[in-house]
């Protein structure tokens, strides 16, 4: 559903590459987790998939539509949740949801669905308030509610669990699983390795803008050692030379 072919993106006139020659494809019915250290290129990759950034080279299609050549058709098939939820702060929660419903051409009145989603995520008491009065977690929730309301085939989520309370995070994980099980795609970035390990069908690890590993948990283990954790794999791949990490890796390996 998302197909990234040899995509590169540089800043400062080609001096610094945020993403380099990245090729990656998601399948219908899967949750793909994007892992990597800070500044590895995860957000840049997600921003290129959504059309926020133009790639220097390569091609990206979403649901079969090229994001550069057929942007509207591509955008109609995904919803993007950014890592920074500070958007539309002067709108009320309900106005923001209705705004998104109109832009994504949802048919008919959405009041019942909005009420039901808001109740599920414990946002029903604040829908009439402006988003600027919300806490960070509530702002994150209202954008996630918009994704659930619009419900396009592809969800693109940049660190979606940040700021969510445990109950909301649990519910979101359930929704992500159900969305993928219905034949759709979820791609999300995260730093919480336990979440990635439990939730993702496949995991992609990016470092210095390059894809360094892609596969299911069992494929990743097979490529390393049968008994190691995702944390151990992640650390060994991204910074095995760090003198502080080396002994930690040894102890993680010993724990199995």
């Amino acid at each position: 559903m998302i197909d990234i072919q040899a995509v590169s993106k540089s800043y400062d006139g080609g001096r610094n590459y945020a993403v380099r020659d990245l090729t990656l494809a998601t399948r219908p019915g899967e949750i793909l987790g994007l892992l990597g250290p800070n500044g590895a290129g995860k957000t840049t990759t997600l921003k290129m998939i959504t059309g926020i950034l133009d790639p220097d080279s390569g091609r990206i299609t979403v649901n079969g539509h090229d994001i550069v050549r057929e942007p509207i058709a591509a955008k109609e098939s995904f919803f993007y949740v950014p890592d920074d939820p500070n958007a539309f702060l002067r709108l009320k929660g309900v106005e923001y949801l209705n705004y998104m419903a109109s832009l994504y051409r949802l048919p008919g009145k959405q009041s019942e669905r909005i009420a039901s989603l808001a109740e599920d995520f414990e946002m029903d008491g604040v829908l009439g308030d402006r988003i600027q009065s919300y806490s960070h977690g509530m702002r994150q929730k209202i954008i996630l509610l918009a994704a659930l309301l619009v419900n396009p085939p592809v969800w693109i989520l940049d660190e979606p669990m940040t700021g969510l309370d445990p109950r909301a995070a649990f519910k979101l994980r359930g929704r992500m699983r159900a969305h993928a099980d219905a034949g759709n795609t979820v791609i999300f970035s995260t730093h919480v390795l336990e979440v990635a390990e439990k939730l993702c069908d496949r995991i992609a690890i990016i470092d210095h803008g390059r894809l360094i590993l892609l596969g299911t948990m069992s494929e990743l283990r097979a490529a390393h050692r049968e008994d190691v954790s995702l944390e151990s794999i992640f650390l060994s791949l991204t910074d095995a030379d760090d003198p502080e990490i080396r002994p930690l890796l040894a102890s993680l390996d010993a724990e199995g």
Binding site: K92, N98, S111, G125
Partner: peptide, 16 residues
């Protein structure tokens, strides 16, 4: 905080 009434919700979700 001020809870949104059901009439308020209907008004705010007018389709355009």
């Amino acid at each position: 905080r001020k809870r949104l009434s059901s009439a308020g919700l209907q008004r705010a979700t007018r389709s355009r």
